[in-house]
Amino acid sequence: MRRHALTFFCWLLLSLLLMAAGPVQVPLDGAPALGPADAPVVMVEFIDFQ
C-alpha cells in the first residue's frame, strides 16, 4: 500500500514538473498521423507496442 502511495506521489510530482516546464515542442516531420494536417489540436503519442 505504502509502495503504491509512493509510486503515485512520484508520478504526480513528475507530471506537475513536466506541466510546469511549459509547452513541449515535438517535431512531427513524416510521422504516422490521423486527422487533418491543419487540425487546431495535435496530440502526439509516444508509443511502445509491447
Partner: peptide, 24 residues
C-alpha cells in the same frame, strides 16, 4: 473531434523488451 484533432505517432520502444523495436 473530427476535423479538429490530429493524432501523431512517435515510436518509443522500451529498450529491454524483446519485441518493442521489432514491432515499431
Amino acid at each position: 473531434y473530427q476535423g479538429r484533432l490530429r493524432l501523431v505517432i512517435k515510436h518509443y520502444p522500451y529498450r529491454y523488451r524483446d519485441y518493442s523495436a521489432l514491432a515499431a
